[in-house]
Design a protein around this nucleic acid. Structure first.
Lengths: 201, 201
DNA sequence: CCTACCGATCGGTAGG
DNA sequence: CCTACCGATCGGTAGG
């Protein structure tokens, strides 16, 4: 409702955003519990007590990281979903968008924390996430429905969606930015694997 | 090489195994870093110093849990792989075996810790795991090769294997034992999704 | 396997 | 945003 802070001038460094970014990286690398406030403070050149000027608790930092991850990936995939291309091209664009957030340098720490540290969220924050998460997953369910209608897939069930998102989300475990495969290539290969080849072509 | 302890009598409770089981459950539920020695001791009715009679460090407990998880799933899937059935039936049996360890009540805490807490392993222990893990993954690679030779799949690449294992391993995030789907049903559905229907049938 | 304990470190706070 | 600090808790140990 009310603005929580006065508008920062263009030059003014956003220390809060710095903390969220550092927290995201450390939560991703070491996990939430193994990351200390002193780690985060050190990463942005502060003393140990200072992050609490920007966040009330460590839990609030996790909340900020996870929300950033979920809104970023939702926005990216929603854009791809509404691109108005063919079902196959739309689907592949959604795969690219999801993988781009998950594996790309700008978003991966937020997204990976979202995937792996939700266990440490307070119940209240968790409830806050569920709505956003349901909305995100329904985008994929709709995409599968469209693919089935186009005859490109046999199974558009919820389990099929869970398998698909599993294959996608597991890429975090094995993808290496300096490896031989680009994100677009991975998206293409997964689309080939999941989609039936149209008969008689 | 040498037996590390004298053979326990049949009646004698195996306290070491109790600790490993409790540690597995807690590592799965709360994560390695968030689990304390006192949590584990309490779960088996000991005082806080006593687990160190059985394990030198907390890290050694993690090592025991993770090794238990990897050897159990390897054994189960290897048995399915050598069952001598058709490629399709063998593949589906392997899926069931993997999912059985991952989601079944006897093995899931070990398997889930294996999947999610390896980050906290000391480099030396991690190196120890790699050989076993490579051997396990090569079993799946071989299964894909056989499926391709049988004309049941188009892509038997490493990335295809990673997608498949991703879909499998992600089930930990959504499977509920009291849900409507059995492990065998999930295995069947994934096989249907991955395998091409033979043409002209 | 317990008792009693150690040094280190943790999240968080008061007061500036 | 820093200084200085608090109470709690941690992994681990000595001695029995």
């Amino acid at each position: 409702m009310a603005a929580s802070r006065s508008k920062p001038a263009a030059e003014e460094p956003n220390r809060r955003a710095d903390i969220v970014r550092a927290a995201g990286r450390l939560f991703h690398e070491k996990g939430y519990s193994a990351t200390t406030i002193r780690d985060i403070a050190g990463a942005v050149g502060m003393r140990s007590g200072s992050p609490f000027y920007h966040f009330k608790t460590k839990q609030d930092m996790l909340r900020a990281v996870v929300l950033e991850g979920l809104t970023a990936i939702s926005t990216a995939v929603a854009e791809a979903a509404h691109s108005g291309k063919s079902p196959r091209a739309t689907f592949e664009a959604m795969l690219r968008a999801h993988l781009g957030q998950l594996l790309g340098i700008e978003g991966r720490d937020f997204a990976a924390t979202l995937l792996h540290e939700t266990r440490h969220l307070d119940p209240a924050v968790l409830a806050e996430l569920v709505t956003l998460k349901d909305r995100y997953e329904s985008m994929w369910q709709k995409a599968l429905k469209d693919l089935k209608r186009a005859g490109l897939i046999a199974d558009d069930s919820q389990v099929a969606r869970l398998f698909l998102l599993g294959a996608l989300n597991w890429t975090v475990q094995w993808y290496r930015p300096d490896g031989s495969r680009t994100i677009a290539q991975i998206a293409r290969q997964l689309a080939d694997l999941v989609l039936d080849k149209p008969r008689g072509k």
